[in-house]
């Protein structure tokens, strides 16, 4: 209970610092834009990061968070990181950037309740694992989309070829390859 109270006091500072840490994984020249433009459609990446930050914090605080709800809120964030030019560790590992922040701000307050503090850190691990599963699903979807697209591009040609095959008299092909 006390953990939740302590975390509640840190909410604004922790979410903001984590958001800034994720922003910092983008090129420096893009930072002023990411930081300032607030419209969710004019600056979608920042909007996705902020949405993720809010839900990560709530889950971290150990409030009764439904896994599906967490996944929905992380969905856009993980999706964009999965198709941007990051290594897998860079893409979803940014969730671990919460740990140094927690150690700096929360740990000193919880020296006498290390078990409770470790629980908070373990929740960071769970969230990162959850995000990793989502990341893999997204990557697999991209691969599947590539295959589907190739198939769709030539869909009618294939149908037409099958159509021709069905129409051709058997004898026409029966002699092929025979001496």
């Amino acid at each position: 209970m006390q953990t939740a109270k302590l975390l509640a006091n840190l909410k604004d500072s922790l979410t903001e610092q984590w958001t800034q840490a994720v922003f910092a994984s983008y090129p420096e020249k893009s930072l002023p834009f990411l930081k300032t433009q607030k419209d969710p459609f004019a600056n979608p990446v920042a909007s996705m990061i902020r949405e993720a930050a809010a839900v990560l914090f709530d889950a971290l605080a150990g409030q009764d968070m439904d896994v599906e709800k967490v996944k929905t809120a992380l969905d856009r964030f993980v999706k964009i990181r999965a198709v941007q030019e990051f290594t897998p560790s860079q893409a979803v590992g940014v969730i671990y950037l919460l740990k140094p922040l927690l150690r700096k701000q929360l740990l000193p307050e919880m020296q006498k309740q290390l078990d409770a503090y470790l629980e908070v850190e373990s929740r960071v691990d769970s969230l990162a694992l959850l995000a990793f599963d989502m990341y893999m699903t997204d990557k697999e979807r991209v691969a599947e989309i590539r295959v589907t697209e190739i198939r769709n591009q030539y869909a009618q040609l294939k149908r037409w070829a099958q159509h021709l095959n069905a129409q051709a008299p058997l004898g026409e092909f029966a002699g092929c390859g025979q001496s």
Binding site: A24, Y26, E28, T87, G93, K99, P100
Partner: peptide, 9 residues
């Protein structure tokens, strides 16, 4: 360190 792995620049 994790930070080294995650820092893309």
């Amino acid at each position: 360190t994790p930070q080294m792995l995650m820092a893309s620049r």
